[in-house]
Design a protein around this nucleic acid. Structure first.
Length: 358
DNA sequence: TCTGGGGTCCTAGGACCC
DNA sequence: TCTGGGGTCCTAGGACCC
């Protein structure tokens, strides 16, 4: 019998900041882009639970978060504390938490900086597995002063949905017998792979819950969802055999940058492209790759219209000059009248390397 | 309201080859 | 006169995840 656990840190970035800055304890905290007095253009990475009471959440435009904070302040509540994202710091904390997890399981898949799957089949029973998870949560609390939510299930899919079921500081156990009933009443959006677009599309047909999706045969799901349909048929019934993946090979390395303000200043744009080529090339090397073969350049115009151009070289190369040359060639058409007849301002550019080899 | 940055995977058309 | 079928690679776009 497989027993899989999924651990997800609660409001991770914000929780680390709150812990490291005792003077902020209890205040609403928003980690993300610089709000720049309401004129900032990024989004919220993480809001702690106090900030969520104001309606602030992950992926919300930081300008909207600023407005919600001002509104709360006008009503006599504390304004939110806005902090930049300190990846290095969160990475260190993450490493220590992953080390704790590894003490309890021989098979661990890190699924991001703040979440991890681990195999507890050896425990023999779901009750024993839950006991291990309670211990782990306690260790994280004592060592790091942070809370996590854990889900235990017969596979990764059920474990992940279960960890999200009670938050924060939750522990949810779903046995193989319970899995199908556990999923039925949940919104379809809870199924990993069903995002905002698919949720909307399904809602138009009156399909909102996992239960509603179950009326379709694998063939009908194939028509609606393509290759993924038959797989989805299994998933909504709680069946999912994917093994834990202990490590994986990156397939691409890239960077993109949204400018402080939209621009058509060629000196500025070329300068940024140049800089990005350099840092992407450095990161490729740091990841132990020697060569790339495909270069992708992305452009986003002021109206959010987004395009990419890619070029695959005849042979792999490790040359940074070749990268700069190719990226430049791919970018040029976007600045040209044919591709950009209305001379739209640029909001973002990006560079990505694919077909990497060691 | 106004939308980040790092990625992965899928689809679909066209080119090309056998 | 009417024009196969399958496989692979490249390119562009889109949905999704953290």
């Amino acid at each position: 019998m497989r027993i899989i656990a999924h651990l997800d840190m609660d409001a991770f970035f914000a929780a680390v900041e709150e812990r490291d800055h005792p003077e902020l304890k209890g205040l609403p905290i928003v980690v993300g882009a610089d709000p720049a007095q309401g004129k900032g253009r990024g989004v919220v990475s993480t809001a702690n639970y106090a900030a969520r009471k104001y309606g602030i959440h992950s992926a919300l435009p930081i300008s909207t978060a600023w407005r919600l904070s001002e509104k709360a302040r006008a009503q006599g509540q504390p304004g939110a504390v806005f902090l930049g994202v300190n990846y290095r710091r969160y990475g260190e904390v993450s490493e220590r938490i992953m080390a704790l997890v590894r003490r309890h399981s021989p098979l661990v898949e890190e699924a991001g900086i703040d979440e991890v799957y681990f195999d507890l089949s050896f425990a023999g029973s779901f009750e024993q597995a839950a006991e291990i998870c309670r211990r782990l949560k306690k260790e994280i609390q004592e060592q790091e002063k942070l809370t996590a939510s854990v889900g235990i299930g017969p596979n990764k899919l059920v474990a992940k949905i279960a960890s999200d079921f009670r938050k924060p500081d939750g522990l949810t156990k779903v046995t193989p017998e319970e899995a199908e009933n556990f999923l039925e009443p949940l919104p379809v959006r809870k199924i990993p792979g069903i995002g905002p677009k698919t949720e909307k599309r399904l809602a138009r047909e009156g399909i909102r819950l996992v239960r509603d999706l179950k009326k379709f045969s694998p063939e009908e799901l194939q028509i609606r969802f393509g290759k993924w349909g038959p797989e989805l048929y299994e998933r909504i019934r709680g069946r999912h055999e994917a093994p834990l993946q202990e490590e994986y090979e990156p397939k691409s390395v890239g960077e993109q940058e949204t400018f402080g303000e939209d621009t058509r200043d060629l000196n500025f744009i070329f300068d940024r492209l140049w800089g990005m080529c350099g840092s992407v090339w450095n990161r490729m090397q740091a990841e132990d790759f020697k060569t790339f073969r495909t270069v992708v350049v992305t452009v986003r115009f002021a109206d959010f219209d987004t395009h990419s151009r890619s070029h695959t070289l005849a042979a792999a190369t490790g040359s940074p000059a070749r990268l700069r040359f190719t990226a430049m060639k791919l970018l040029m058409p976007f600045l040209d009248r044919r591709e950009n007849p209305r001379r739209k301002l640029l909001r973002l550019i990006g560079v990505r390397l694919e077909k990497l080899e060691r």
